[in-house]
Amino acid sequence: MRKQQTFSIFTGILRRDLKLAVRAPSQWINPLLFFLIAVSLFPLGVGPEQNMLREIAPGVIWVAALLAAMLAQDSLFRADFEDGSLEQMLISSRPMSMIIMAKVLAHWLVTGLPLIVLSPVLSILMGLSLVGWWALLLTLLLGTPILSLLGAVGAALVVSVKRGGVLLSLLVLPLCIPVLIFATAVVQTAGVGLAIEGQVSLLGALLALSVTLSPIAIAGALRVTGGAA
């Protein structure tokens, strides 16, 4: 019975947030457009030479994904904070970690997953090979949830700060550097035809670590900042 209840809060919040995302789509479509535009600026900035583009593609795509994630993450708790829904979650006796995981998952489904769906287009734009695209897909699949979780920690910390979006990036971007390093290395290594299992497993370890530890930090941060009037 208890287990079922715990599950019901997870699915309930998940459905609520997805419903809200469908009804107010600009919040997740805009960061996605930003991602697309940011990547297409690079060929214009450095020139259309295919080999050079292919070389910088992993870095460019991942840096753009990082910035887009920061833009999107600001809205994760802010709307709930402003209309008082967050208060109701904080004074609920249901497990806070479940509420948080449901919210982060819903948010990833509308902000992280579309990046993965867009990845073939980006690979073509940046001249990546098929192998490179597969590697990119794999890193986005493992890496964007980490960005969502780290971003959620930042979003929880700055939720009561007016116009906290830039501050969120200041706090979280340095923490995202390991993801950037390992993910781009995977795509580069795959590009030259070497084995990528090692780096991929490092990314997987980072994901496991952030899934376990971030909810604690997010819940703690929300209890500190989310109650502010």
Binding site: R16, K19, L20, R23, A24, E82, D83, G84, S85, E87, Q88, I91, A229
Partner: peptide, 15 residues
């Protein structure tokens, strides 16, 4: 055991 209706209502406009 607590139910709270605050100054901010905790209602989503889009629901």
């Amino acid at each position: 055991q607590l139910a709270f209706v605050g100054h901010k209502h905790g209602i989503k406009d889009e629901l």
